[in-house]
Design a protein around this nucleic acid. Sequence first.
DNA 1: GTATTCTATCGTAATATTGCGATGTGTTAA
DNA 2: TTAACACATCGCAATATTACGATAGAATAC
Lengths: 109, 109
Amino acid sequence: MGASKTDLFTKQQNDLALMAKALAHPARIAILQYLVKKNACVCGDLVEELGLAQATTSQHLKELKSAGIIQGNIEGASVCYCIDPKVWKQYQSIFTTFFKDVNIDKSCC
Amino acid sequence: MGASKTDLFTKQQNDLALMAKALAHPARIAILQYLVKKNACVCGDLVEELGLAQATTSQHLKELKSAGIIQGNIEGASVCYCIDPKVWKQYQSIFTTFFKDVNIDKSCC
DNA sequence: GTATTCTATCGTAATATTGCGATGTGTTAA
DNA sequence: TTAACACATCGCAATATTACGATAGAATAC
């Protein structure tokens, strides 16, 4: 099949899985870290930074954009990408909540 | 290709991506949430709980186990799965760190 | 012993992801 | 206008993921 059976799960579970999927590639992690580090907009030097082909880099940017976590603004000939702080904060909050409520002491089996 | 070019990225980036990948499916989120909720070991009732075939459920459990975030202990005829609190804490810490250091105020472009 | 239960694994099919060259579109430079 | 750049998208190939039925192994029930 290859397609996830999303109808079996809650919206919350599907959403969290989608967020995780957006982060589930080292190139996308690298892009986000780079954008965070520069703390400002960066454009095509991501291609150089990553070492991936331009087409591949563009594809990863597209996925991050469709996940909402980055924005792209056209700036002349080039495009300026940056973290969307609002969505970033949502991610932060949702992952934090997910990991929080576990009783760490209970040993098991 | 389909295979990620892991050699282009740092171990830290690859590791984080692998952790995210472990969470990148609603069934695996559901499994983890169920294990956290029950706060004790659960076995084959995950199959009922999820609504996926037994083989599929077993496969997701295997992925979570190979990601280290859950453990399985044989208990008679059945297997008892539970969160590995130590690894869970690591995940928590790594995701928290990842999301922390962004300057939320800087608007962009 | 045999039958039953529980889980893992194999094999297979459908679909998704990753990666890149080639191409297209829009923008600046000449 | 033409040339050069910056990105996005298309098309394709290689690989990975998801899902399930069938089967195998190990433990319990009888």
